[in-house]
Amino acid sequence: MKRSQLPRAEFDHDPDELIRVVLFCPHPDKAIKMLGVTKSQFEAWQRGIEAVPRSAFAFLVLWGQKTAPSGWGLFSGLRLDDDGDYLRHHAFRHRIRFDDLASLPEYWRLQALAQAQAETIEQIIIERNFYREQCQREAKFGLMLNRIFRA
């Protein structure tokens, strides 16, 4: 009797998902390294010689999705781009590079600085308008005094 050439597992699972994550793993060398298994053991999983452990299956499913699951709160839905360099969320247009995460404190500081600058400009405009009106009032009073003393 010939043995199946497809991956197998000894726990409840979706067979299509098992085949997808084990046979069509995008980077098997990285997966082998991250799982801490040998290449021959991974190939035995692919050929169905050994059953795929539940932990390896769960890891490969999560790693293959590149999307944070719903249990991650506000971070659920975050997705890695195909190259793995950018985080993207369905609610936002922009994507975040990993290097940008290190710069977040600088972004926060710049945002506070921009807010303080906007408030300062608003205060300067209020003061400018006050002094402009004051100068116009004093100029009118000065003209009246000038006419009185010239006469």
Rank of each mutant, 00 (worst) to 15 (best):
A114P: 00
F92Y: 15
R93L: 07
F92D: 07
P15R: 13
L23W: 02
T38V: 02
A44P: 02
R109F: 10
Q65M: 10
C25P: 03
I32Q: 02
T38Q: 08
R132A: 13
V22W: 02
R150G: 05
R97C: 12
E138H: 11
R109S: 08
K140C: 01
S4T: 15
P28H: 03
A51T: 08
L80R: 11
L35D: 02
P105T: 05
S70R: 15
G71T: 11
Q46L: 04
G36P: 06
I121Q: 12
M1L: 09
F42R: 04
R128D: 11
Y86F: 15
K66E: 12
P26C: 15
E106R: 14
V22C: 07
M144K: 05
F57K: 04
Q46F: 00
K33W: 02
E138T: 05
I124Y: 02
R97N: 14
G36D: 03
M144Y: 10
R132W: 09
H27D: 10
S103C: 09
A151D: 12
E133I: 02
K39Q: 06
Q123H: 06
D85Y: 15
R47E: 09
R128K: 14
E122H: 05
P15C: 11
H27V: 05
G73Q: 10
V61E: 07
S40R: 11
S40V: 12
W45T: 03
L113H: 10
F24W: 11
A51N: 11
F24Y: 15
R93S: 15
G48L: 04
Q65Y: 00
L80C: 09
E10D: 15
W72N: 04
W45N: 02
A58P: 03
R8H: 12
F75V: 00
A58C: 06
I49P: 01
M34V: 08
M1H: 11
L87P: 01
F98D: 05
D16N: 15
H89K: 03
E17Y: 00
E122M: 06
G84K: 11
Q123N: 13
L35N: 01
A68R: 04
A31Y: 01
S103N: 13
H94T: 12
P26E: 07
P28R: 06
L35A: 06
A151H: 14
A118R: 12
E127A: 15
Q134E: 14
E138G: 10
G84T: 07
S4G: 10
A31V: 08
A58W: 04
K66L: 07
K140S: 10
L80M: 12
G77W: 09
R8T: 14
A114V: 10
R79D: 07
M1E: 13
R95I: 11
D83Y: 08
A56S: 13
C25V: 03
G77E: 05
E17N: 11
A112R: 15
G48Y: 02
F11T: 00
Y107P: 06
I96Q: 01
P26N: 10
L18R: 06
Q134W: 09
H89I: 05
Y107D: 09
E106P: 03
N129C: 06
W45Q: 06
G64F: 04
L60A: 02
N146K: 13
A9H: 04
A58I: 04
A114K: 14
L18Y: 05
W108S: 10
E10C: 09
P15V: 09
D99Y: 01
F149C: 12
P26M: 08
R147W: 08
Q117N: 11
